[in-house]
Design a protein around this nucleic acid. Structure first.
Lengths: 117, 117
DNA sequence: TCACTATATGACTATCTGCTCATATATTAG
DNA sequence: CTAATATATGAGCAGATAGTCATATAGTGA
């Protein structure tokens, strides 16, 4: 039985070497996990799915999801920081929208897979 | 200003009504968030990405990720419970593989989006 | 049978996360 | 200016989660 630098057992060194060659750089792994993390919460998913139809303001989203405006605002800040949503001000009202189609395509694809079993 | 049953303020009742019509059922939201949750952790992403190439055993995955075999095993159990991976026994060694293409397609799509900016 | 290997699992813990509550900020109206 | 509206934000808390450690299980070979 071989061992790597860290002392782990290795049964198939060639597989590990090949996987290391093919592996994604740490930065891409981190970015990917952040995107998926954004989609990994029911409230955020419902928010984002609603925004695929049309822009909405915080208090409408709050009424729709039946959670506090503060909770919505916190989630929107997270999504803003990830460049997933953007907003537009009209008086005191802020209208949020999806910044691009990436997220809605991911949701659509996952949904498709769910539905086909 | 209108208010819904729960006392939330509503600025655009028609938007909320339309969003409610269009909304995904709670079960689909739950299923979606579970899929994305599975992809929302760097270790699991690296695991799954490695398995897109070929099946691997627990101790190889442990060596590849440089985390304990126990940690790998815990993550694999989670992915097994979500029907994302399956295994095949050969003696004492368990070889894990992706159960279908859904997850790798989601990763590929997200990666594509990341790379195009 | 027994020893060994590869993996699984339960308990525990430190960190993370989604929300609430109180407060702050920004815009409008008067 | 003040008051009101819509949203943002920080602190703090309860629940979730990824890992560690010790132990259990399943298959192999003697």
């Amino acid at each position: 039985m071989e061992h790597d630098v860290c002392g782990s057992r290795i049964i198939h060194p060639h597989k590990i070497a090949a996987a290391r060659e093919n592996a994604l750089p740490a930065t891409e792994i981190a970015d990917l996990s952040q995107i998926f993390k954004a989609l990994a919460d029911p409230s955020r998913l419902r928010l984002l799915y609603a925004l695929t139809r049309e822009e909405m303001c915080v208090c409408d989203l709050s009424a729709l999801l039946e959670i506090s405006e503060s909770a919505v605002s916190h989630q929107l800040r997270l999504l803003r920081n990830l460049q997933i949503v953007a907003n537009r001000r009209e008086g005191t009202v802020l209208y949020y929208r999806l910044k691009d189609h990436h997220v809605s395509e991911l949701i659509a694809l996952a949904l498709e897979h769910l539905r086909e079993g």
